[in-house]
């Protein structure tokens, strides 16, 4: 269900904190059944990716805020993974209702989908728990968006694709968190998606070729 103003206002950070604190670190039974319904079961690659990205995230976090806060980094990531599994399940449930299909093999074996969804979940946790705990360390590195994109080596345009579905799928987001994701969205649309290595340019080219119209839009280099 789309986010209604009342629901967003009613939700408090405590709600999401309580939900994440009691959530499991592993995929739920429901989520496992979605994995089992896939032509190619994605579970192993999902678990492997969560582990690999976790190592990188904790390393970069400790580098950014100091080894003394390394434990905070692993806590943030842990909660991010819980949110990632929770939102994935909710997304699949609504897609199942919308499309009345049960086999999401292609989507669930898509590395970019998972990396984007995980990045969004970790970004929400980072924004939720804020920076006050490690604010005192003059780390110089700003961990707010788009820091997570560099850590996960993720293109902004791919991150952008999950934002709206994430907001729809996670009913416990607060107004501030939705506003935060919306600011990320705008920053991507206004600048980050137009950087020269963005996948956007290939997509524009492909759609132009499909339309068969003259390709006047693309400049050789993005300005």
């Amino acid at each position: 269900p789309p986010q209604t103003p009342v629901r967003a206002v009613m939700n408090t950070i405590q709600q999401l904190v309580m939900i994440l604190n009691s959530a499991s670190d592993q995929p739920s039974e429901n989520l496992n059944s979605y994995f089992n319904n896939c032509t190619v079961n994605p579970k192993e690659s999902i678990l492997k990716r969560v582990e690999n990205i976790g190592r990188i995230f904790k390393e970069k976090f400790a580098e950014a805020v100091g080894q003394g806060c390394a434990e905070i980094g692993s806590q943030r990531y842990k909660l991010g993974v819980r949110l990632y599994y929770r939102v994935m399940e909710s997304m699949l449930k609504s897609e199942e209702e919308r499309l009345s299909i049960h086999n999401f093999s292609k989507l669930l074996n898509d590395k970019i989908f998972h990396t984007s969804l995980l990045a969004c979940a970790v970004e929400v946790v980072m924004a939720t728990y804020g920076r006050n705990t490690y604010q005192s360390h003059d780390s110089g590195t700003d961990l707010s968006f788009p820091w997570i994109l560099n850590v996960l080596d993720l293109k902004a345009f791919d991150f952008y694709k999950v934002i709206e579905s994430f907001i729809k799928a996670e009913a416990s987001l607060t107004r501030e968190m939705i506003k935060h994701l919306e600011r990320c969205e705008h920053r991507i649309m206004e600048s980050l998606a137009w950087q020269s290595d963005s996948p956007l340019f290939d997509l524009i080219k492909q759609s132009k070729e499909r339309e068969g119209s003259v390709d006047h839009l693309l400049e050789p280099t993005s300005t």
Partner: peptide
């Protein structure tokens, strides 16, 4: 400020966005 603007149309969802339809 006003609420989040849901831009996805009918028949557009995460599956379409990741070319899995």
């Amino acid at each position: 400020g006003q609420d989040y603007h849901f831009g996805l149309e009918e028949g557009e969802g995460i599956r379409e966005l990741f070319d899995c339809d």
